[in-house]
Amino acid sequence: MDSQTNSPDPSRSPLVSRKTVLRAALAAGAAVPLAMTGAPALARTFAETGTPVEVTPACDDGDDPTPSQIEGPYFKPNSPQRTSLLEAGTPGTRLTLTGYVFGLACRPISGALMDFWQADTNGAYDNTGFRFRGHQYTASNGSFTLTTIVPGLYPGRTRHLHVKVQAPGRPVLTTQLYFPNEPRNNTDSIYDPRLLMAVRDGGGGREASFDFVLDVPQDPGGGDPSDPPTGGTWAVGTTYGTGATVAYGGRTYRCLQGHTAQPGWEPPNAPALWQLV
C-alpha cells in the first residue's frame, strides 16, 4: 500500500506511470491531446498548496486495491439514482467530487455501482428519508461525478463521505473518503490517510477528486492475448489489443496498450497508446 505524502515519491514512478498514462488518455477525448501536453496530468495532482498529492494505492498490475472501511450505522439501501445530492435551498458549501474507478491492471471499469451517503452541514444523517444519499454508475470510461456539499462534523469523527463501490458481478468495496488539513483527522480513530481526497477551492465551492482501485483482475493488454491484432484503418469505437497495427494519415502505428478508440485518441495525438512503426 502507498502512504499519503505531500510530495510524490520518485521511487514509485514506475507504479504510477501506467495509471497516470491511462487516466490522461481517458481525458484526451474531451481535453487537450496528449501530444500537446508536457506530461500527463492527474486531476488528483492538485492540493491547496499546489503540491502534487499521491492518493490511493498506485495502480499497477497486481497492486493492492483501495482500502476498505467500516460501513457505520447510517447506511440505507434503495437510495435514489442521481449524481447530485443537492436540493433547492440546500445549505452548505458546494462540493463536486470527480474521479475514476479502475481494476488491478489500471483499466477503467464501466457500469460500476457507486452508492454515496453523508451527513448534512450540521453533522446529521437523514435516517427516515434519502437526503444526502444517492447511487450512480460509472461511465464507459470509468468516470464518475458527484455534486453535494461538504459534510458537517459530529462528535468523534472528522469530515468524511461514505461510499460503496461494486464492479458488475464483483464483491462490494465499502469505504470512506476524507478531507486534507482537517484538525480532527489526527484524533479520529477510523481515519486513514490513504483515503484522502485531493481538494481545492473552485467553482463557487470546493472541488475534490479520488480514483478507486477495485480488487478486480484484468488483462493489462486490454483483450485476449490469443486474439490476433486488429489491423486496418484507425476508427472510433474499435477495440485494439496490444501489438495491433493500424493505418492513419498515411502512416502505420502499433498499439502500446489495449483500449477502445475514442475521439481524440488518434495515433498522432495519443503517444501513450500508439507508436509510429
Rank of each mutant, 00 (worst) to 15 (best):
T138A: 02
T158E: 14
R159P: 04
I109N: 04
H135G: 05
G123Y: 02
Y125N: 01
R159V: 05
P151R: 09
N127M: 15
S140W: 06
T147F: 05
L104T: 13
G129R: 03
R159G: 01
T138D: 11
T145I: 07
N127Y: 08
T148I: 02
T138Y: 00
D126A: 02
A139W: 11
F132T: 00
D115C: 03
T147D: 15
V150N: 12
G123L: 00
A119S: 11
G129K: 05
W117V: 01
V150D: 09
R107F: 06
N127W: 08
G152V: 02
T147S: 15
A112N: 07
Y137G: 03
G129N: 10
D120A: 09
G134F: 08
F132P: 00
H135S: 09
S143L: 07
G111S: 06
A139P: 06
G156P: 02
P155R: 01
A105K: 01
Y137M: 07
Y154P: 03
A124P: 04
I149N: 05
R107W: 08
S140I: 11
R133E: 06
P108S: 13
T147Q: 15
M114F: 07
L104C: 12
N122Y: 09
L153E: 12
I109D: 00
F144L: 06
R133K: 10
T145L: 11
A124W: 12
H135Y: 14
Y154R: 12
L104A: 13
N127P: 03
L146N: 07
T148N: 10
A124E: 11
A105T: 01
T128G: 13
